[in-house]
Nucleic acid binder design. Structure first.
Lengths: 136, 136
DNA sequence: GTAGATGCAAAGTATTTGCGACAAG
DNA sequence: CTTGTCGCAAATACTTTGCATCTAC
């Protein structure tokens, strides 16, 4: 079991306000990848006084602190998810919008190799697969 | 040598207006990945009467017709490039912003395999590597 | 007590759209 | 001719920010 978001805030010197606690809690409980608006709605159910500006500020702060990961999948709005130990990529169902998380060590290794080949040190990457479900 | 953008328009039944010809020409001559604003500036030098709304409408149309590829690299604005036979992915220098195009058949194959594994047919994908140049 | 956080509304970006005039097939 | 396109400006969508107030540490 990895650290909670609150623990991460403490260890990174991020001030723990009530609003941030609520946002952290909601993100921890979300197994999907909500966009800011959706997150704002979920947060509002717990504390309706939290403004959307705070949600925007908080997800940005959490992202910079390595607590959340930001994704810009097709279609405009940024979406967030809690960042835990295991890195993973995404397979997106283009019909339903469903997102499957996966890890493929071999692809990871090859990516590093490609970067090396061009004289680069890989610092980040983005891999998204878009697919349609096969009839089984 | 592959088809010109104008030929593609004809074969796809896209009406060839003067504006579209200019935008097609500029994109063909661009070896980088301009965003809409940059494209608009280049286009304006040839025909200053073309509006940015038309540029937006045209890149969208070209993208839907499979003539241009749209990329949403980190940092807001969408960027476009001409879509030719050879598919490729991108390695982005996080310091200079320089973009290197590469192809790695093995990664392509593995991606398809991952999708299959989850019962999906791969219809699209996005792979971006972000790196910093090593001192040589 | 003080630096930093919040709420609100206003301001920014990037992109889309309604509409009357116009042009391609 | 007729359908679709263009230019313009207004509208939209998402995100950021200035400022006065408030709060965690």
């Amino acid at each position: 079991m990895s650290e909670t978001i609150e623990q991460k805030c403490l260890s990174k010197g991020v001030k723990l306000t009530d609003q941030r606690k609520v946002i952290a809690q909601v993100m921890s409980q979300s197994s999907d990848h909500p966009d800011v608006d959706e997150l704002y709605h979920r947060v509002s159910k717990i504390d309706p006084k939290i403004s959307i500006a705070t949600v925007y500020r908080t997800v940005k702060l959490f992202e910079e602190s390595g607590i959340l990961a930001k994704h810009e999948f097709k279609g405009g709005k940024a979406r967030y998810e809690e960042l835990n130990e295991g890195h993973h990529d995404h397979l997106i169902d283009v019909k339903s919008g469903e997102i499957i998380e996966f890890v493929d060590e071999e692809i990871e290794k090859l990516q590093k190799k490609v970067a090396e080949k061009y004289g680069y040190k890989l610092v980040d990457h983005k891999l998204e697969l878009y697919g349609i479900k096969k009839k089984s």
